[in-house]
């Protein structure tokens, strides 16, 4: 499986400079309007979408049949994509945290101190969770519809987790449970775990689709 992850990292390495440029431009445009938190989430989401790009590279090269004759199982091929997704989310999130944090401090959105660092850390966790949840849906979509059609369907990938979050919030509200700032912080801190659970479910879906795929 290490070989599969390595292959994607090599392939995407050529896009790293252009992605870095996009993230820097976004920092200039997004931090003043949406704040460091919004920028951080955007960084993680953009990087997570590079997972779809790795599928495009695979299609162009005819990689998948080759991977299947290597000593790896179909499940491992899918799992490798989720590992790559986790790597991309983490890299994007850490970049967003660093760049967004610096911009936030420079522009006065935050004042240097433990509270600001804690707030940025919580937002970073939430950003990772949003990006991983979106990417988790994107992977089975790509296996089902192919990389190019899946890009169009990524909106669905965004809407499903967003709708689930809204539904949970609605249920809490309907049950008369007020969402306090403390509870929100706990939820945001727990969001990566929730995203991992969501990712595990999507992994099973992706495995089911890929098991039937013919190459």
């Amino acid at each position: 499986m290490k070989s599969l992850v390595l292959k994607d990292l090599y392939n995407i390495g050529h896009n790293a400079k252009s992605m870095l440029f996009i993230l820097v431009v976004l920092a200039v445009g997004l931090v003043p309007t949406s704040g460091a938190g919004g920028y951080m989430i955007m960084c993680a989401v953009l990087c997570s979408m590079m997972t779809v790009t790795t599928f495009t590279f695979d299609d162009m090269a005819g990689w998948t049949p080759y991977a299947l004759v290597m000593p790896v199982t179909r499940r491992e091929i899918v799992l490798a994509k989720y590992l790559v997704l986790a790597v991309f989310c983490t890299v994007g999130d850490l970049f967003g945290l660093a760049a967004g944090g610096v911009c936030g401090f420079v522009m006065g959105e935050y004042t240097v101190g433990p509270q600001a660092f804690a707030e940025l850390a919580v937002l970073a966790l939430a950003g990772w969770a949003v990006a991983f949840a979106m990417g988790s849906v994107a992977i089975p979509l790509v296996y089902r519809f192919g990389a190019e059609r899946a890009r169009v369907l990524l909106l669905v990938a965004f809407l499903i987790p967003a709708a689930l979050c809204a539904a949970v919030y609605g249920l809490l509200w309907a049950a008369g449970v007020p969402v306090s700032e403390g509870m929100l912080t706990v939820l945001l801190c727990a969001s990566p775990l929730l995203a991992l659970v969501w990712g595990a479910a999507m992994y099973r879906v992706a495995c089911g689709i890929f098991a039937r795929a013919e190459c």
Binding site: K7, Y10, N11, M60, A61, G62, W63, P65, Y66
Partner: peptide
Amino acid sequence: VVFDGINFYETL
């Protein structure tokens, strides 16, 4: 296995 055509992405 060797297929007709290379199976690695062109930047490798």
